[in-house]
Simulated scan of single mutants.
Amino acid sequence: MSRYRRAGIAGGTFFFTVTLADRSSDLLINEIERFRSAYRAAKNRYPFETIAICVLPDHVHALWSLPVNDSDFATRWMLIKSGFSRGLPAAAARSNSKIAKREKGIWQRRYWEHAIRDDRDFERHVDYIHYNPVKHGLVSRVMDWSHSSFHRFVERGLLPSDWSGDAADTTRSFGE
Rank of each mutant, 00 (worst) to 15 (best):
H147R: 11
R94K: 08
A74C: 09
K135S: 04
F35E: 04
R34V: 05
I51P: 02
E49L: 11
K81W: 01
F14W: 14
P57D: 02
Y131E: 01
G105H: 01
R124M: 15
A62M: 11
S85V: 03
F122W: 10
A42Q: 03
E123L: 13
Y39D: 03
S37H: 14
H125K: 14
R109W: 01
G83M: 02
I106A: 09
K81T: 07
I32E: 05
Y131L: 05
D169L: 06
A93T: 10
D162N: 15
S161D: 13
R34Q: 08
E113I: 13
R40W: 08
E123R: 15
G8S: 10
V68K: 12
R34M: 09
R120H: 14
R141D: 04
F122I: 10
H114G: 02
D121Y: 08
G8Y: 03
C54K: 00
E113S: 14
H147N: 12
I80H: 01
E176F: 11
A74N: 14
F16E: 05
Y46A: 00
Y131V: 05
D169T: 04
Y128K: 07
T17I: 13
S149H: 11
S164I: 02
I80L: 10
G175M: 07
H136L: 07
A90G: 01
F48S: 11
D118H: 14
R124T: 14
D118Q: 13
G175E: 04
A52P: 13
V68Y: 09
K43T: 02
I32P: 00
E49V: 13
H125P: 08
R3V: 15
N96T: 05
D118C: 15
F16P: 02
I99L: 14
A167G: 10
N44G: 10
D22S: 06
F84S: 03
S173V: 14
M78E: 07
L28K: 03
G87M: 03
D72Y: 06
D144W: 02
H130S: 05
A92Y: 00
E155F: 06
M143I: 14
A52F: 03
